[in-house]
Structures are given as structure tokens and as C-alpha cells.
Amino acid sequence: MTTEISVNLKDKFIVFFDGECGFCNHWVQWILERDKKDKFLFSSLQSEFGQNFLTDRNLPNKVFDTLYLWKPERFYLSKYQAILKIAAEIGGIYSLASVGKILPDFVGNQFYNLVSRNRKKLADNQCFLPNAEQRKKFIEK
């Protein structure tokens, strides 16, 4: 099954995250609160849309320990590079994260993997309940 791209998605960045992880949900909230330019949409990796994204790219679709950032018809990034790009797109003081580009990807990804392995210990699993305006930014199908 191919992921369908509607016209309005082409100009957005889509953040794919583990929808069952409290730590991941915390960072989704963080992005939502700072996305003043309305650049981001979100989809859990467990959703139909998320599963299609993974399947279309032959990516693992049962283990959800990686964040993906997708710009439809352009690129997708994972792990450390995705975090740097999100910070750059949010802008302002968060643009300073681009200094992290001086690290080789394998070093940044090793740090990402360390956090990912311990993420369930770093945050509780309380459910994030987006408000009506924020719900518009979530893609399920």
C-alpha cells in the first residue's frame, strides 16, 4: 500500500514517533508548542499512515525506537539528523542546535540510540491529550 500525499502535506514536515512512548509524546508536545510557523504534522509509527510510511521505504515496522522526519516528495531523515532539522525549522534560539552538525552522524546517532534505549525510564507514560487545534496536526490514515 502506498502512502498517499495530499496537496497540503507537500509543504509540511511530518514527524513520525512512537505513539506509545511517554518520552516521545513529551517531545511531540514540545514541537507543537514551538511550531509558530505551522510547519509540522505528526503521525505515530503505529498508525496506518505511519505503517505505510515504513513499509513504503522497507523500514522496520514492528520496533519503534527511531524518530523520522519526512518532507513529502523530498526527503526523510532519522534519528540525530531529524532532531537537528526540527530544531532548525522551529528557528529562533533552537537554530543553535545546527552546531551539532559538526558531529559525525554516527556519533550523534550513538547518543540518540543511548537515549532511545532508556526513553521509557526518562518519562512516564501519561497520555498526551492534544487540544482541538493541535489534533488537526495529527495524521492517522
Rank of each mutant, 00 (worst) to 15 (best):
F106K: 01
L96G: 07
Q46E: 01
S47Y: 02
N52C: 02
F111L: 10
I83A: 15
D124Y: 13
A87E: 05
K10S: 11
L54K: 03
D11M: 05
I31K: 03
I83R: 02
D105I: 00
N61D: 14
S6D: 10
D105L: 02
Q134D: 13
K10G: 05
K12A: 09
K141Q: 08
F64L: 07
L122W: 15
N8E: 14
F111A: 10
I90N: 03
F23Y: 15
E33F: 09
G19K: 06
I5M: 06
A88V: 04
P72I: 05
F53R: 03
Y94P: 01
Q134R: 06
F49S: 03
D38T: 02
D38V: 00
F75D: 11
D38Q: 09
L67S: 10
I102P: 00
S44A: 09
E33R: 14
L77E: 15
N118H: 14
L96A: 05
E140L: 11
G100K: 01
E73V: 06
C21N: 08
Y76Q: 11
N109A: 01
R74Q: 15
F75N: 11
K79H: 12
N8I: 07
H26F: 15
N25H: 09
N109C: 01
A132C: 04
Y76D: 13
L41W: 05
N118P: 09
E140P: 00
T3I: 13
P72H: 06
I90Q: 03
K136W: 03
T55W: 01
F17E: 12
R34S: 13
S6T: 14
R34L: 14
K121V: 12
W27A: 12
I90W: 06
F111Q: 00
L103V: 00
R117C: 07
V115F: 11
E4Q: 10
T2Y: 08
D35F: 08
N58M: 07
R117G: 12
S95A: 03
I86M: 12
P60L: 05
C24W: 11
K37L: 09
I139Q: 05
S98K: 06
V15N: 06
I14T: 05
Y76K: 07
S116A: 15
V107K: 00
D35M: 08
G22H: 10
K71G: 08
L96D: 00
L96S: 02
Y80G: 14
F23Q: 09
Q51H: 05
A87V: 02
P104W: 02
L32F: 10
L59T: 06
F49T: 01
G100Y: 01
L59M: 12
I5L: 10
Y76A: 13
G19A: 09
I102S: 00
N25T: 11
L54R: 03
